[in-house]
Amino acid sequence: MALPLPEHVDVLVVGAGPVGALAALKLAEAGRQVALIEARPEGAPVRDARALALSWASRAALADAGVWRDDLGATAIDTVHVSQQGGWGRTVLSRDDLGLPHLGVVVDYPSLFATLAARLAEAALPIAWGTRVAAVDPLSAYARVTLQGDDGERVVTARLVVLAEGGELVDGLPGLTRRVHDYGQAALLAEVASELPHRGVAYERFSKRGPLALLPRGDGFMLVWTRTPEDARELRDGDPAELERQLAEAMGERLGAFRVAGSRALFPLTLKQASRRVARRVALIGNAAQTLHPVAAQGLNLGIRDALALAAALAGAADAGDAAALSAYERARALDSGAVVGFTHQLVRFFDGHGPLLSAARGLGMNLLDAAPALRRRFAGHLVFGVGGASLDGMV
């Protein structure tokens, strides 16, 4: 049973998913009085089809916070194979490039969420389950937060409000706006099995029908395929044989035949990016700061680095909402966030186009990256540790 929510706390975190939970745990570890708000009711089954691709650095951050467990059923990613259908050129990134045990892992969201909830309970952090934030009113010394739950409406205050979810609240904060770009696409998710084993290889394939990723998951894969909304709906609801045929066409013979082995789902794809990460008494991390296209599988990893950077920036501040500390957080995340958001957005445009000249340019870029070990290691390091990450600078 969750502890009751106090009327006032040092830090109120909105969202108890991986990013919000990590931020709460790190801030509590530093001695802050922390509480969380989560829209999902306590104990409600998590029916989320996503398999999360975590970099090795993100997995290490969760392990350091006491979240990661060996029984999560994670599948290791040792190699990332990038190629395009109907054109030359490819890049292969390996754990050996960085001297790491693995480049990353794939874990089911429901399993990770359950572990997060157990760790938060163990840490005795108050959580208001089944509660939504109706408004955030930043004042000079604290922020007033209006909550709505089954028991009605109430107001709590906090020295700092951390939005890990609830990006729609950004539009009501002083000095903040959101850039929203609708890609006009949907991500089709499907559990698939292949005739040949994956051997720890994740595939990024820029097919003629749209970019796709095959993430190793158990003995099979989680397919994430960017399609038009109409295509995605047809493949989700239609005969699985049609999805199997199109996937085999896109991937060639490298994995043999495919079989749809589980559920299928789709998500609309939109880029959302806040103009700033901080307002008075408010900090944005994770999905509240940026929501990315899944083509490079960087959204969650970027959010985890947000949480770590915020905890580090607040480490020496007597007041959790100290303006100088929040400005330091914003500066610390500017390079990594700007680079990853920009790279992901341009990647969608570059690899979603067609034509012989564009195909040749893509092939040349992939081959040049593959043939230059130092450049390939740095690129792999950016994906694992972020742009400008301290761990990257010490390893590459």
Results as ranks from 00 to 15, higher is better:
8 H>F: 04
13 V>S: 06
24 A>T: 00
29 E>M: 05
30 A>K: 09
31 G>Y: 07
33 Q>C: 11
39 A>H: 00
52 L>A: 07
54 L>V: 03
57 A>R: 11
62 L>I: 10
69 R>F: 07
77 I>H: 14
83 S>P: 03
93 L>F: 12
102 H>Q: 15
105 V>W: 15
111 S>P: 07
118 A>D: 15
127 I>R: 09
136 V>S: 10
136 V>H: 07
140 S>W: 11
155 V>T: 14
163 L>M: 08
164 A>E: 05
166 G>Y: 01
168 E>K: 06
177 T>G: 15
191 E>W: 08
192 V>H: 12
202 A>T: 03
211 P>N: 04
211 P>H: 03
212 L>T: 02
242 E>I: 07
242 E>S: 08
249 E>L: 14
253 E>H: 09
253 E>A: 15
254 R>M: 05
273 Q>H: 09
274 A>L: 02
276 R>W: 01
282 V>N: 01
286 G>H: 00
300 L>E: 12
308 L>A: 14
324 A>H: 14
327 S>I: 05
334 A>W: 12
334 A>D: 10
338 G>V: 02
338 G>F: 05
353 G>N: 03
354 H>P: 04
360 A>Y: 04
365 G>H: 04
370 D>I: 03
377 R>E: 04
390 A>T: 11
393 D>L: 14
393 D>K: 14
